[in-house]
Computed example of a mutant assay.
Amino acid sequence: MFFIRPPGVYAPQWDTDALVAALAREALPADAAVLDVGTGSGALAVAAARAGAARIAAVDVSAVAVLTTRLNAWFAGYGRRIRVHRGELLRPVAGRRFDLIMANPPYVPSPAPEPPRGGRARAWEAGPDGRAVLDQLCAQAPSMLRPGGVLLLVQSTLCGTGPTVERLEHAGLDVTVTDRRMVPFGPVLRSRAAWLAAHGLISPGQDKEELVVIRARRPE
Score class of each variant (00 low, 15 high):
3 F>R: 01
9 V>F: 01
10 Y>T: 03
11 A>M: 10
13 Q>Y: 07
13 Q>A: 13
14 W>K: 05
16 T>E: 01
28 L>D: 09
30 A>D: 13
33 A>F: 04
37 V>A: 00
39 T>P: 02
45 A>K: 01
47 A>L: 03
51 A>G: 13
53 A>Q: 07
58 A>I: 11
59 V>D: 05
60 D>C: 08
60 D>S: 11
63 A>Y: 09
64 V>K: 10
64 V>M: 15
67 L>Q: 13
69 T>I: 09
70 R>T: 14
72 N>G: 08
75 F>H: 11
82 I>S: 09
85 H>Y: 13
86 R>H: 14
86 R>D: 15
90 L>E: 01
95 G>F: 06
100 L>D: 00
100 L>M: 08
111 P>D: 09
111 P>T: 10
112 A>Y: 09
118 G>H: 13
123 A>Q: 02
125 E>L: 09
126 A>L: 04
130 G>M: 09
130 G>N: 11
133 V>H: 03
133 V>W: 01
135 D>Y: 07
135 D>K: 09
140 Q>H: 12
146 R>P: 02
150 V>F: 00
153 L>T: 01
156 S>I: 00
160 G>E: 02
163 P>K: 05
167 R>W: 13
178 T>H: 12
179 D>Y: 11
182 M>T: 15
182 M>S: 15
183 V>P: 04
185 F>W: 05
186 G>M: 07
191 S>G: 15
191 S>I: 10
193 A>R: 15
196 L>Y: 07
196 L>Q: 04
196 L>P: 04
203 S>I: 06
204 P>Q: 11
205 G>C: 15
216 A>C: 10
217 R>T: 05
